[in-house]
């Protein structure tokens, strides 16, 4: 006799089906399906058009390949990529103090009052809702074309995103160390400085690195609307039908993005 022969078994009772759960599931599934049908029509999705137009794509690629690897093209491409990197870097680091202040105001537990909490949350929502490209266009009208409006645009949008992410990290922090210092008579700011912030530093830095990664990619798009960097060069080569140069710029971008992604991932991995 094996152990399995002596195993006792019981019939599994049938899972109770609640009518409300079934109705809610049906409604949600129908609503999601309807939204996809509407989206399909609204975006004029047509695989037929894609199949018919393949020749145009092929011509485009034929003109782009091989990429132009002359120094005359590579040199501005590399310096443009560097500018894109610097826009992403400054757009991230200059937003840190604003993000931190707003995150502390927008996190339950550190917000000094409900009024401050709601105000900070509203400011963050506004900054997040306005796309960085729109900020860039606004700042281009103020300071002209070039990388500087790109930096300003990224700072504004990034404060909105990073402030919210940081506020949520602060809310999720282990409340124990803060409680210990409060019971020792520490004030609100002292508690934040000596318990809360040191506790969540790895999460905050991890999110910062993630946003740096995103911002370098965003600064590329900002270049397309006149904020300088390699995005500006890509836009220029498309306008001049120099698709081989465009491909060179894109390859440089790929290297840049992969390098930043690796750096960001390595830092986050080390922190975790």
């Amino acid at each position: 006799m094996t152990i399995a022969d002596g195993v006792r078994r019981l019939p599994v009772p049938s899972k109770p089906r609640r009518p409300r759960t079934l109705i809610a599931g049906t409604v949600i599934t129908t609503a999601v399906a309807a939204a996809h049908v509407i989206a399909w029509n609204a975006t004029e999705v047509s695989f037929g058009a894609l199949a018919e137009g393949w020749r145009g794509m092929a011509d485009f690629l034929a003109e782009a390949i091989p990429p132009s690897l002359t120094w005359d093209v590579l040199e501005p491409s590399l310096s443009g990529a560097a500018v894109t990197l610097w826009i992403g870097l400054l757009g991230t680091t200059l937003s840190v103090p604003f993000s931190l202040v707003l995150a502390l105001l927008a996190a339950r537990g550190t917000a000094p009052s409900p009024w401050a909490y709601q105000t900070a949350r509203s400011v963050l929502s506004f900054l997040r809702a306005v796309p960085d490209v729109v900020f860039a266009l606004i700042f281009v009208t103020a300071v002209g074309l070039g990388p500087f409006p790109g930096v300003l645009a990224l700072v504004c949008h990034n404060v909105g995103v990073m402030g919210k992410l940081w506020a949520e990290a602060l809310e999720d922090a282990d409340p124990g160390p803060s409680q210990a210092l409060r019971s020792a008579g520490a004030g609100r700011i002292q508690t934040a400085a000596h318990a809360l912030l040191p506790t969540v530093t790895p999460q905050l830095v991890g999110l910062l690195m993630y946003r740096f990664d995103v911002n370098v990619r965003s600064s590329l798009v900002l270049g397309l609307v006149g904020a300088g960097g390699i995005g500006f060069l890509i836009n220029q080569s498309i306008r001049l039908f120099k698709f081989d140069e465009m491909l060179t710029h894109i390859l440089v971008v790929v290297v840049l993005i992969v390098a930043v992604d690796r750096l960001s991932a390595a830092v986050r991995r080390r922190l975790s």
């Binding site: 210990a180 019971s183 318990a195 040191p198 506790t199 790895p202």
Partner: peptide, 12 residues
């Protein structure tokens, strides 16, 4: 002063 069950030091 309070000494807590879960200690509550700032580990970093």
């Amino acid at each position: 002063a309070v000494v807590f069950q879960h200690i509550h030091l700032v580990r970093r």
